[in-house]
Design a protein around this nucleic acid. Structure first.
Lengths: 186, 186
DNA sequence: ATGCTACCTGAACGATAGTCCCAAAATATC
DNA sequence: GATATTTTGGGACTATCGTTCAGGTAGCAT
């Protein structure tokens, strides 16, 4: 008996999230350009019309994917910072490792995130979601050195973007001195 | 008599460059997603098949556009640096002004450049072209503090990307302290 | 059982995409 | 001038796109 209505609703939500996850995989593989109702449906293993049933349009699907992706990124970054802090280190090594990971094994995911990022540049309604991971980071640091923190965030973004057009991803060792310099206080 | 062959070639090249310029305008307006043979042809004022005649495929058109765009960007950045140097200043104000311009009046162009940038992330053959403006900058500075320079480049890229998802573009005055801090030596 | 509702899906429609084909025009070569 | 080559432009073919639609299925109240 226990909440059959919820059970049904949960099932519906599950489909939705499966489609969103499939969309993200498609973007990782082929980019936003590769996202169609049919490719997403095939990736998710659902009939084509299922994507149009759960999302009013392809645009809504992309928007939902960006929001989900940004939320994942934000929580991930949150725990990364938290872990680095609990170790008591200044975090330079941790940051270098994470950058190397984002440009190596997780390269597709990183590309997807920046493609959705640029999508937000053209659609104002997506910007709050795209800014979320920046906001999470901003909320975690003291505000007495705002300029230095903005420079740090910009540096991270720049290193990631530039790392994406390297022929082979930089290693954590190569990244380390750059991150060190970036974190060094003036 | 004088070089009829060149004359013909020039005319052919002219069509080509017109199509490339039209492609860039389309990307500025609607993004890479809006680029089709037909939209580009309409923008350039040429018949649809003209784009397929001068470029073997849509991909070739995008590649040619990226290369042209990167070359323009590189020469522009070159003269910007040169001007800043001749003024004897450290260039912080000049850089802040250029960033504000890139995020304000030239916002569409900046978006186009980063979309093509991300395109290069997925296609190795585009990467040399995408890296060109970085190379131009790199070749202009002394190599005795490479790390600092890499941080500077990453910072610029990050500030531009993040500025693209601001609801209203930052002014040169707002950018100034950040650029100042970014340029400050450790 | 009988509706009622939310959930799901196969088939199909109209629009638009990339690209090919062929003839006309322009240009170069003899 | 005659011929060959390049360039141009209109039309059409096929594939795929987003989306609609009509119907099917499963849980729930009456």
């Amino acid at each position: 008996m226990r909440q059959r209505v919820d059970g049904r609703k949960v099932r519906g939500e599950r489909r939705r999230t499966e489609i969103i996850e499939a969309t993200l995989r498609v973007i990782e593989r082929d980019g936003v350009a590769g996202v169609t109702h049919r490719t997403v449906a095939r990736e998710a293993g659902v009939p084509t019309t299922s994507t149009t049933y759960h999302f009013a349009s392809l645009d809504d699907l992309l928007i939902a994917t960006l929001i989900s992706c940004a939320r994942d990124m934000a929580t991930e970054v949150y725990w990364m910072i938290d872990r680095a802090r609990s170790r008591g280190s200044r975090g330079a090594e941790e940051v270098a490792n994470l950058l190397a990971e984002a440009l190596g094994p997780r390269r597709g995911r990183t590309m997807a995130e920046y493609e959705l990022y640029l999508l937000a540049a053209r659609r104002p309604e997506l910007r709050p979601a795209a800014r979320r991971w920046l906001d999470v980071l901003t909320s975690m640091v003291r505000h007495d050195d705002e300029v230095a923190f903005r420079v740090f965030l910009a540096g991270i973004d720049g290193l990631l973007i530039q790392g994406l057009i390297d022929d082979e991803p930089p290693t954590a060792e190569e990244l380390r001195p750059v991150v060190d310099y970036l974190l060094k206080p003036r």
